[in-house]
Each structure stands twice: as structure tokens, then as C-alpha cells.
Amino acid sequence: MDLEQVTLTQLRYAVAVEQTRSFRTAAERCHVSQSGLSMQVQKLEELLGTVLFDRSKKPVLVTEEGARAIAQMREILRETERLGQIVAGDDAPAGRYRLGIIPTLAPTVLPLFLDPFVKAHPRVELFIEELKTEEIIERLAADTLDAGLAATPLHAPGLSETPLGHEAMVAYLPEGDPLLDRKTVTQANLSDRELWVLPEGHCFRSQVLSYCRSGQARPPRGVQLESGSFETLIGLVDTGLGATVLPALVAQGLPPDKRRDRVRPLARPIPLREIGLVTSRTQLRRRVTESLAAAIREHLGRALGPSPPGGSVLDPLLPEG
């Protein structure tokens, strides 16, 4: 075993293969040729005197010895990053920052803060990915994300959560629906309705079904729809087929006449989606995280206004059944 010749680049390549389970995908992520990455990983294995990956399997599998070694490689890379921050001795947020965001927040929340944050912190390199909540939790645990913007609380072991705002839910109804004559729509009004909801795996689906006290979705006319787009659900309701529940920011983006004629607030206790920034408790990019949280909180607050009184935060991870 000759550790003197081991390089940080080799460690990064090995960690990338472990994350992606593919030498080709790892090479694309590291912006190098597959042959170059493979050669460096093989050299690393020779220096360590152990086989890290079972290349005969597709996807590539990590060996038992490799799993232990790669866990230590992650620690080395984390501490190296920390060393760079200490040496820099600069309080200004800087460096690469990997942010995951759930698909139901990306279209409405990202445009609120992204431009002002980038202008205020030009030394931060943001890498943003749309990920489902379970993927964010897994990636934070694997140290392949610095933070996740998601519906909280998640109560995930080893993670910290910073609440940033509360978004009300509203009913979106078809033209001529009797509920449009009401000022507010109640839980009871929706509990026996056929609703369009997002597919399984989306937290907003769980929250809507929880509010409607329905263990299973009841799609209009028995049509099973797999679409993660609120625009699609809105379009279906516009045809007169069923109703749906929307986040307030999505409803705000509708034309004024649609907001007036088709959207109705939900009665107290108003169901709320808590929007939070989730990080690992051992995360090292604290300066960037704090600046990012402050920016999101400020601009989200302007868009949403104060939290409605009598609101109730819904659990985003309730199981269906």
C-alpha cells in the first residue's frame, strides 16, 4: 500500500463512481473522459491494494472493502474543503454549492430568489437539481448535496431544517361548480370529491390527501394520470373534468380572471405547506447556507405575505393507504 501517491482527484473520481454506479456517468459528472477516469480509479485501487468496485455487475457495485474505503474518502474530501475555507479566512460566501429543490417548488420559488442571490453573492457557484424529497434526503446523507429546498418538517435523522415560509393551499374549481358560490371551501366539501392530484412520490400529493382525509386518490372518471405538472391539472379542470388543490404561489401565477372566478380559499384551519431548507448537521458550507436561507426567506415572505392565522402545517411524508 502506497498512500503517498494517492491524489484528491482519484478520491473524487471514486466517490463519483460510487454515487452514480456507472463509470460513464461519473466521467460525465467530473467532465473527464471515461478512459481517463477508469485509469485513475484503477491506479487508486492498486495504491490501496484493494478492489473498490465489482465491474462485472451493471450497475457497478461497490465491494465491501470499497464501501469502507469510500466512506473515509468522503471524510477526507470534506476536511479538505474545510481547510480551504479556513485558509481563505474570508467571511463572504463563496465556492461551489449544491442545492436540491423539489419539483413543486422549483417553478414558483426559484424565480423569487435566484437572480438577487446570484447578484449579491457572485463568488458562489450554484449547482441546482430538481429532486424528489426522498432523493434529497438520500443525497444529503451521502454528502452529494449541500442543502435541499423542500416541504418540511421531514424529521429525518442527521438532518437540520430551517423553516423559511408557509404557503397556503387553495381550491381550483371548474366553471359552474356550486362551490364557487362559497367564500371558502371546507374539508368536508373536498373529502368526497374526485380530485386531480400529483403522482406518488410528490409530497404535495400526500398533503392534499391528508387534508381531504382520503387514504387514496379518487381521480375524475377513474382516469389514472401520472403528471407532476400543476399546469396539466389546471388544464384538465378547465375542461370541466374534476377539481384540484393548488399551492398559493401557483394560483398567484394564474390570470386575474381565473384567480377571481375559479380559485377559492380553504376554510380554517387553513392547510399550509411549510417550505424549509434542509441540510446535513455536519455541513461545512454554513456561510453560504445562512445567506441562501436569508435570501429565500426575504423574497418568499414578500410573495406570500404573513402566514395566515389559524393555519395548520401538513406533514409532507404521510404514507398513502
Rank of each mutant, 00 (worst) to 15 (best):
Q42V: 00
Q34D: 08
R24N: 03
Q40K: 15
Q34N: 07
Q34E: 13
L37Q: 06
V15R: 15
L37R: 03
V15Q: 12
R12W: 02
E28Q: 15
V41C: 05
M39L: 13
Q34T: 11
S35C: 01
Q40F: 02
R21M: 08
C30L: 15
C30K: 14
A26H: 08
K43P: 01
Q10I: 01
R29M: 08
S22M: 06
V41M: 03
A27V: 04
T25P: 00
V41E: 04
Q42L: 09
Q40H: 15
A16N: 04
C30W: 03
T25N: 11
A14N: 08
E18F: 05
E45I: 02
A14P: 09
Q10R: 10
R21L: 10
R24C: 00
R12E: 14
V41T: 05
V17R: 02
S38L: 13
Q19L: 06
Q19F: 08
V17W: 05
L37C: 05
Q40S: 11
H31D: 06
R12L: 04
M39H: 13
V15Y: 02
Y13M: 10
V15N: 11
T20N: 13
R29A: 12
A26R: 07
V32Y: 06
H31P: 00
E18Q: 15
E28M: 14
Q34C: 01
R21H: 14
A16E: 13
R24Q: 07
T9W: 00
T20W: 12
L37V: 03
V15S: 09
S33C: 04
C30V: 12
V32G: 07
H31N: 06
L44D: 10
M39G: 01
A14C: 08
L37K: 02
T25F: 04
E45S: 03
E45L: 00
L44Q: 11
S35E: 11
Q10F: 01
L11N: 05
Q10S: 12
R24A: 10
Q19T: 08
L44V: 12
A16T: 10
Y13P: 01
F23D: 07
V41A: 04
L44M: 08
Q10L: 02
T9S: 06
A26F: 11
A26M: 06
T25M: 12
E28I: 15
C30G: 02
A16F: 09
R24K: 09
H31A: 11
T9P: 00
A27L: 03
T20C: 12
A26G: 09
C30D: 10
L44C: 11
R12M: 10
E18W: 10
L11E: 03
V15W: 04
V17N: 11
V41S: 06
A26Q: 07
G36T: 12
R12S: 13
R21D: 10
V32E: 08
F23Y: 15
